[in-house]
């Protein structure tokens, strides 16, 4: 059989194109960052979420991967839900601190199997409503939600109008606060700071003047060391009471934080994947690094180095034997 010239050229062109791209179809879910593996280094890309605790995990993992295992580490800051998507596509290799995303877990871990669980981080997270401890000392009964309406006038600001202000933070965080305020019949308005940076800056300003405030906050968080805060008791959490978020009337659960790896990376990621699976530390360890970053303004690398130098017994166990 003889090929005419035109189809032959098309075939040659297609062959060249497929050689260039690796295969006939370009699956963009398998494309990594253009900045990865530059200059022949083995690269791991870690997702950093916008809060400092997550930065601490990443900083220490990065330091050890670079100095003990000889990897190059790239970090990308992505919000939580998009990070799951990026992880599934292999644009990042690991998320080190996840606060629970049942929908995404079902979609990516169970159905598509593109993400593999990486074990617990060793830290337990908890979300709640907090008032500064100086205020709780003045009015001891303020820490019971039944009494919040009595004190609503204390929390008034220009933004909340005639109601008390309950400050929420970044839009990426899990929150039921609007529904809680409504369902518990509280005389409060939820004001969204829009980012954690804005929220922390505002809380520090309030604390400096010893002003009253009520805020959505979460533990572990380094800010507790700077501004002691006391949790307001909401109706207790029971398994399944948060199933319908529109009708919710209970507090937030205590969540053991999880790590997740890209499925391909978990299998063939070599020492880096093994290391990240074993990475596990305590709330105190994490807070120590977070405080160095956020309060003493050390760069994450310097903070990680300091912690690594003083806690060899903790991290020696994470290294592949």
């Amino acid at each position: 059989m003889k090929l005419t010239r035109r189809p032959a050229m098309i075939a040659a062109g297609a062959a060249a194109l497929s050689l260039l791209t690796g295969c006939g179809a370009a699956d963009m879910t398998k494309q990594t960052s253009p900045f990865a593996n530059a200059q022949g280094a083995k690269t791991v890309t870690l997702s950093v979420q916008s809060w400092v605790g997550a930065q601490s995990n990443v900083a220490v993992a990065q330091y050890l991967l670079e100095h003990e295992l000889g990897y190059r580490v790239d970090t990308v800051q992505v919000d939580e839900v998009p990070a799951w998507d990026a992880l599934s596509q292999g644009r990042v290799d690991a998320i080190l601190e996840d606060w629970g995303h049942p929908d995404q877990e079902k979609r990516y871990v169970e159905d598509k199997k593109t993400i593999a669980p990486g074990g617990g981080l060793g830290v337990t997270g908890h979300i709640g409503w907090y008032v500064p401890t100086y205020l709780a000392k003045q009015h001891p009964d303020i820490t019971d939600w039944h009494n919040l309406n009595k004190y609503a006038s204390l929390f008034r600001t220009a933004e909340s109008g005639g109601k008390g202000q309950l400050m929420d933070g970044s839009p990426s965080y899990v929150t039921n606060d609007k529904a809680l305020v409504k369902n518990l019949g509280l005389d409060y308005k939820v004001v969204f700071a829009g980012s954690e940076a804005a929220q922390i800056t505002q809380l520090k300003q309030f604390a400096k003047e010893k002003k009253p405030f009520l805020t959505y906050w979460y533990a572990p968080q380094w800010l507790f060391k700077k501004i002691p805060m006391t949790e307001v008791e909401l109706p207790p959490y029971k398994e399944g009471c948060d199933a319908d978020t529109a009708k919710i009337t209970c507090a937030y659960p205590h969540t053991p934080l999880q790590k997740y790896l890209n499925a391909g990376f978990a299998e063939s990621g070599g020492e880096a994947a093994a290391f990240l699976k074993k990475f596990k530390w305590t709330t105190d360890d994490q807070n120590e690094v977070s405080l160095m970053i956020a309060d003493q303004k050390l760069s994450p690398q310097d903070a990680a180095k300091k912690w690594v130098d003083s806690h060899p017994s903790v991290w020696k166990k994470w290294l592949p034997s």
Partner: peptide, 22 residues
């Protein structure tokens, strides 16, 4: 950008949409 510092309204909604993949 105003949505990131408490401007609320449309700015916050866009940030929310990006952050939650909504």
């Amino acid at each position: 950008v105003g949505g990131l510092v408490g401007g609320g309204a449309l700015g916050y909604d866009v940030v929310f949409g990006l952050a939650q993949g909504d």
